[in-house]
Amino acid sequence: MLSRTADSLYWTGRYIERADFLARILEATLRLAAIPTRGDGDAETVWASALASAGAPKALGRAPTEKSVREYLAFTPDNPSSISACITRARTNARSVRTALTIELWEALNGAWNGLAEQGQPTRRDDFVRFLEWVKTTTLAVEGATSRTMLRNDAYYFLRLGAAIERADNTARLLDVKYHLLLPEGERVGGQLDYFQWTTLLREVSALTAYRWVYRDSVKPWLVADLLVLNRQMPRSLASCQASIVRYLERLANDYGRRGPAQRLAAERMRAFDNSRIESIFQAGLHEYIQEFLAENGQLGMAIHDQYLS
């Protein structure tokens, strides 16, 4: 397979994953912003946190508003972290490698792009929420077409690798933002607001029910972290993403008959997960842990790039 084809597939996977994540972040933020606030600037913090979760904390300067953040994260065409840019780029990438996709997957991606124009850029909140619903349905359709129609060969693995790397990034940032930005100073960890924020976030990453199943407990920050960092059953957890990355890299290595730096790096990081416990992570500092994870995830992305995509 051409390196560029692999690269386009990888980025198609990443952009679709990112579009879905952005939709979820925006939904969660709309809910959080609806909580009665105690003082000035809380809404601002909530919307700033959405930007931070999307990996663009400084994009709008000092005082982000609901309107500006919504617009930026949903529609800005030149922001690589806007839903509309992600869908457009995913489709552009897919278009340049159409022959590597099944008709079903191409139609799902092309349909998403055609749908953008039909959806327009709703400003009313309820219309906007419907837009976000549409994004989630659409990305789910892409996901379904991928898993139901694509041959399990390198094309599929690169799509999945991109999605897994992106998803790991997103989960990590989401956690970091919740811990470091969202809870106003003076609010008690485990307090009413904290609780509401967590349940909202968990719901938005489709993890609230999962949490109850796994822990049979009320929502507690360290258990949430455990779920999103270490739990291998939770598809969005860092450990799960890492396991996916390892799995797809291994399949590539088997098909190609050659292992390289990307496989070695990925395996090494997986071992680190296997030996981790949430208590020790908290002791060393979750923020620091996540920052390190993000850096390593970036390195792994580069290794994949160097080995296959260039």
Binding site: M1, L2, A6, S96, F158, Y256
Partner: peptide, 26 residues
């Protein structure tokens, strides 16, 4: 697609030692 061959862009190809190559994942 119909020919069953790669669709390449300029940067996918390079010339070394008077021969043309394409960059692939392998």
């Amino acid at each position: 697609d119909k020919l069953g061959v790669e669709l390449v862009e300029g940067p996918d190809l390079f010339v070394d030692d008077g021969k043309v190559f394409m960059r692939t994942t392998q």
